[in-house]
Design a protein around this nucleic acid. Structure first.
Length: 602
RNA sequence: GCCGAAAUAGCUCAGUGGUAGAGCACUUCCAUGGUAAGGAAGGGGUCCCGGGUUCAAGUCCCGGUUUCGGCUCCA
């Protein structure tokens, strides 16, 4: 299997060279950056200079690639002294390659390897296939074109990135394309529309979703569960407003460091009427839409003196925050401008930190399991500071060493399969992030568990320790879903809209056989509702077949067809979601069954 | 914000310079039905917006908006 993975990676990487060679033939003056293998194929970043490349050019590139493959050219490896290589790239104007080799030199390399394919020679560590002729013609395709900043830095020039798909066999390529097409059917944006869950309305504003009755019900059910479990877990609830005085954000540092992601202030001291008349403001105060809940929770903490005996304090709030995300970053419910964090701050002493962190990790795993996610498929990242760039971070080395080590210990003790990422920490502290993949394979951060050095210092948070001295508490910041919007998006995709009974917005759909059964259906629906079930009735003037068809599309767990037979008996005719079989069940048994499913969250 | 693409009825989409269409949905009427589309009639359009070319623009050109796929950023 490992051998196969290596082969696949070599194949993909070789294809990126073939593509580069093809592009070099078509546009000889372009500058090449990097061209790696990726999870589904390969790409190459290229500076086309003044030349405009569009998707219609991909066909020509692909054709040229097939031609190169047909020629069966060899991949020839050569070594070159590093200074010679720098001179060579400089002479040919390949500025990106020159920069890469200079970095290799700085890292202590004395020579570099090149791979030559026909007339195209490229700096490369390898390995490659022996020859382009080893590549089958039908196992790859160029599929998209995008911009990408050189070295991933938006201050650098934007290069053109051409992506290709590649697999070992044509069957695997076809299968992948089919899989993506299937996955797109589960896209929360598509299902959100089809199932009437939410929409984002231009008139309301970008990234500000509107939740329709069924979507809002889904949210409510998830939120109720969240509250119940938090209370069980020893959390207390707090609440805070959507706007707050600018002073809060100046104190927290966001006024300066985070301002590129914040909505501009609302000026108070005047009414809308004053403003419309362009009246002069007599006394101005500025309020900001909150981009996070923390400062409010800090103010609650500071509202009275605290003792070491008060800890731990676990304060939770589903708080809606507003962040002015760049337009191009917005995406369905996974990236919005107004979103509700399932937030909590845990204030505690140093000796309580490890225990509290472990509790949160358990809570995170429990939550994901409750919604049917396989926790083994969740990617966990330990985000650490960049040791080379210490001035970027709040707090001192001791604090960072302690918190990074305790997070690492917690992740290890909890047997999380985590990856450490240097430089990914927030400026205010290290964190443990849990990321889920959406249907098209994009990773989205959901749960996060963070240390915060910034708030306790900046807001001068204190408690009295057992010696009667002031001491700084530890503040843990955590979210389990991350945000309701993002989590619900992933939940919709996870279940493909076929939610388990306990969170189905509608659990039972009653289908009246004809008009004369409608009244009975409505009464039955009321009975179910008073027992706590969520029911809807199809009383439309349609044939039974048509009503069933529509109910199936709604993905309701139970469909009940109600006609003369049911009116004259205590039995119900039930059709389960996903089945085309009908079964007859006494009403009492059905209620017991559905209750059992709700209890077991299935 | 940047690179590439798309935008036609509530939804899914057809329409390559010459009278704006289909299916579903909606309304009304007929049919009163038994497990995946009963029949008929009807209403519904700023063809994303603004400019240009043309005798004539949904269609071609320019600018903008939004959406989608990436990059950057992020819950």
């Amino acid at each position: 299997m490992d051998q196969q993975n290596n082969n696949l990676e070599t194949l993909r990487h070789s294809l990126s060279h073939v593509m580069a060679a093809a592009i070099k033939e078509l546009w000889p003056d372009v500058k090449f950056a990097i061209g790696p293998a990726i999870e589904t194929g390969f790409y190459y970043d290229i500076d086309f200079g003044e030349i405009k490349i569009g998707e219609e050019d991909l066909g020509a590139i692909e054709k040229k690639m097939k031609h190169i493959i047909k020629q069966g050219l060899k991949f020839e490896r050569t070594e070159m002294a590093i200074d010679e290589a720098i001179a060579k790239e400089k002479a040919s104007g390949q500025i990106y390659k020159e920069e890469l080799i200079k970095d290799l030199k700085a890292a202590g390399e004395t020579s570099v390897s090149y791979y030559k394919l026909g007339n195209f020679e490229d700096l490369c560590r390898g390995p490659h296939l022996e020859a382009s002729g080893k590549i089958k013609q039908d196992i790859f395709m160029l599929n998209k074109l995008a911009g990408a900043y050189w070295r991933g830095d938006e201050k650098n020039k934007m290069l053109t990135r051409i992506y290709g798909l590649a697999f070992l066999t044509k069957e695997e390529l076809d299968e992948y394309i089919k899989m993506i097409a299937e996955a797109e059917k589960r896209d929360h944006r598509k299902l959100g529309k089809e199932m009437d869950l939410f929409h984002i309305d231009d008139k309301v504003g970008l990234g500000l979703p509107l939740w329709h009755p069924r979507g809002a019900m889904l949210w409510r059910l998830v939120e109720d569960f969240w509250y119940k479990e938090h209370l069980k877990g020893g959390y207390e609830l707090v609440r805070s407003p959507h706007i707050g005085n600018r002073i809060l954000w100046e104190t927290s540092g966001h006024w300066g460091f985070y301002n590129s992601s914040m909505y501009p202030p609302i000026e108070i001291g005047q009414t809308l009427e004053d403003r419309q008349k362009s009246e002069k403001i007599k006394e101005s105060e500025e309020f900001l839409l909150k981009p996070m809940n923390c400062p409010f929770h800090v103010q609650i903490f500071k509202s009275s003196p605290k003792s070491y005996r008060d800890f731990p304090m676990r304060w939770a709030e589903c708080g809606t925050v507003y962040r002015f995300e760049k337009k191009g970053e917005l995406s369905g419910l996974t990236r919005v401008r107004g979103f509700t964090q399932d937030d909590a701050h845990i204030m505690c002493r140093a000796d309580q930190v490890e225990y509290e962190l472990k509790r949160v990790v358990d809570f995170i795993l429990f939550i994901f399991q409750s919604f049917g996610f396989d926790t083994k498929t969740i990617n966990v990242y330990l985000s650490l500071r960049d040791p080379k760039n210490k001035e970027k971070y709040a707090g001192n080395d001791e604090g960072w060493d302690f918190t990074e080590n305790v997070l690492r210990k917690v992740a290890t003790d909890k047997e999380l399969n985590f990856v450490e990422e240097e430089g990914e920490a927030a400026f205010y502290g290290p964190k443990l992030d849990f990321k889920l993949k959406d249907v098209i394979g994009r990773e989205w951060q959901c749960s996060t568990l963070q240390f915060d050095f910034n708030l306790p210092e900046r807001f001068d948070m204190n408690y009295t320790n057992n010696k009667g001295e002031d001491e700084r508490p530890y503040v843990l910041h955590r979210a389990l879903f991350g945000s309701f919007e993002r989590f619900l998006a992933l939940l919709i995709e996870h279940y493909a809209g076929a939610f388990p009974v306990w969170i189905s917005p509608i659990q039972i759909k009653l289908v009246a056989v004809s008009e004369k059964h409608v009244e009975y259906c409505l009464k039955l629906a009321d009975d179910f509702r008073s027992s706590g079930f969520r029911v809807s009735v199809d009383a439309s003037d349609e044939t039974v077949g048509n009503k069933i068809r529509k109910a199936v599309k709604e993905k309701v767990p139970y469909m009940l067809v109600i006609g003369d037979k049911e009116m004259n008996s205590d039995n119900l005719s039930i059709r389960n979601r996903g089945s085309d079989q009908m079964r007859e069940v006494p009403r009492e048994d059905f209620i017991a069954e559905i209750m059992m499913k709700i209890d077991n969250k299935v």
